[in-house]
Design a protein around this nucleic acid. Structure first.
Lengths: 340, 340
DNA sequence: TGCCGAAATGATTGCGCTAACATTTGGGTG
DNA sequence: CACCCAAATGTTAGCGCAATCATTTCGGCA
């Protein structure tokens, strides 16, 4: 006869009845509010244990207007970046006592984003992280004009919504500089797809780095993040005797490039140097191991959630437009000095 | 003057007031119940549009006892398998009108799993998918003894909870057979960590495949899924002249193996054949491209969610113990006949 | 024209919890 | 020992929605 109504799990009222107090007192014990005598507290706790009481999060949310849940909007991709970011966010959220509800959108367009955000709103999430690596999402984010706090991750600058990201431009410059410092006259580039913000930022960084070195960047080859596209670009680069160094916008494409170069008998790094971006776990074991730019996604998630938490908790808090995390260069074997 | 109470978003009561009907009628329109005249329906819909009404999912859940949300329990890893499975589950859930709440557990032990499941229960999820690739989780799953339906994915057999998975044993046999059919006398093996169920199943499949061919399997080398461990195992295999074929329990380790063999001057597939497992997107561009076993995680997610949906919807439904999806062999360049 | 039954609509109540206010209890103080 | 204040506890109401049952409306038929 532990449970009042068999079947359903015990409610706060059941506990109150069992402990011989009012529901309110149980609620106070539950939420560790003061003003409960030690003896009743113990009695209530005993009752809770006895019926294995678990507070109903929904009911609490409804009463409070808050859900202790954060929403994450991401899109349908197995890409390393977004996937890692979600994990980082989830972990950080959990550490701060939030649950996480995920909504995946199929296409990164205005309507899909809007409806994802609305559906998270319906679930009364306290805040959202939108992973928005597409240029097309910038406008959509701006148009939301909303109440519950939103933080964009891996996004470009669009005003309105605060951004948390890893400094793509800096990463690209680190990679390019690494190559230039080996003495390469110029650095070629395989870019990501044009509709990704990060792709543009990496290309911009690559183009900007030579600076006053008096080097003009050659035209970039367009990739689409896949190893396949890196392979195709590699086939073209292999035929161009003037190419001695390539900055590739991600590690998968760099893998494709390495594959193509190997097929063509171009040795890396002796004949051609390659630097990638992302530092996926595999890249240390490419042939040769890949010099690349590491992004700390766990950190990204932590920063995004911390920011969001503040926005949720403190009404007066005004967030910076932009929080950038510094990436770092990982030097391995795929880049070296040009052969004389 | 569109919204009744400025600030907060409109409630069903606001719509009712505006349309001049009772809340119940609005609810009927909302849920597309019958017994509403065309004219009132239109009037109500207009009112809804006017105040941009969005039903509050929490309130509905509380009233209904159902939340149209599925919970996913996974654990903290960037492994390709679990990550892909989560995506597949999310997509399938969305297609069936469910939201998804994710809980990541740090360690795959009894208590962590239990508390994750309880916390999802608190949120009144209608069902859960537990991604449980660790042997240690089997017992924990059995101990739950619960009310809301649970489906385990990528798990071993433990009774109690229905399992959805990809047939690891079959995959391992396909890989091993592929090598044997090239004429290799025996197939060596680099295994995954012993505490992963899938790791054991793959090793078992490998050991079983030779069957009556009269080949006895050599001892396996222990890996831990990382390319690093594959590399280390590779260093040992390279020194053993008798090894001509290796089945590696995942593609990352296969990559490490390829790296090690390359360093030692062992040619693949001429001197040694290699088959991996998973078919990660990169493996087609390894050097050489990797023959491997493909797992369809999207399908896995879809099957898991479909099963869960039935368990949720139909009280009388009794699930099969075990639903296995067939993996397929992807033949590329890393395996071939032994040199004479 | 009056009556009947089905369709349309409404009133009440409760899901499980907490905020806000009301009430009681228990010392310490003069 | 009465009084007062603070601590402890209880009461009421409401978060937004839907199930249940009650009531109204309306068309069809004798």
């Amino acid at each position: 006869m532990a449970e009042a109504r068999s079947g359903r799990s015990a409610t706060l009222a059941d506990v109150a009845r069992l402990a011989g107090v009012s529901a309110m007192t149980v609620s106070r014990v539950l939420n560790d509010r003061g003003n409960v005598s030690a003896s009743t507290r113990i009695r209530v706790q005993r009752a809770m244990d006895q019926v294995r009481y678990r507070p109903n999060a929904m009911a609490r949310s409804l009463a409070l207007g808050r859900s202790q849940t954060l929403g994450v909007v991401t899109f349908d991709t197995a890409q390393y970046g977004p996937g890692s970011a979600v994990l980082g966010i989830e972990r950080a959220a959990r550490e701060r006592g939030y649950g996480v509800t995920i909504t995946v959108i199929e296409r990164p367009d205005h309507d899909a984003l809007r409806s994802a955000v609305l559906s998270l709103d319906d679930r009364m999430v306290d805040g959202m992280v939108v992973i928005a690596p597409f240029a097309a999402m910038a406008g959509a984010l701006r148009d939301l004009g909303r109440g519950t706090p939103i933080v964009a991750a891996e996004a470009g600058h669009q005003g309105e919504v605060p951004i948390v990201g890893i400094d793509q431009g800096l990463g690209a410059r680190l990679a390019t500089r690494h190559l230039l410092e080996f003495g390469h006259r110029t650095v070629h580039h395989i870019s990501g797809p044009a509709d990704w913000i990060e792709s543009r930022l990496r290309s911009d960084g690559w183009r900007a780095e030579p600076g006053d070195r008096g080097v003009t960047a050659p035209p970039a080859l367009d990739g689409d993040w896949t190893a396949q596209s890196g392979y195709e670009a590699g086939m073209r680069l292999a035929d161009d005797g003037s190419v001695t160094a390539v900055f590739v916008a991600n590690d998968q494409m760099a893998l494709g490039l390495l594959h193509a170069l190997h097929e063509r008998g171009v040795r890396v790094p002796q004949d051609m140097s390659v630097v990638g971006f992302d530092d996926i776990p595999e890249s240390a074991y490419f042939l040769p191991s890949l010099s690349t730019v590491r992004q700390d996604f766990a950190r990204l998630g932590a920063v995004a959630v911390e920011l969001l938490d503040r926005l949720v908790t403190d009404d007066d808090f005004v967030a910076d437009d932009r929080l950038l995390i510094e990436p770092s260069l990982v030097v391995r074997e795929s880049a070296g000095p040009p052969s004389p």
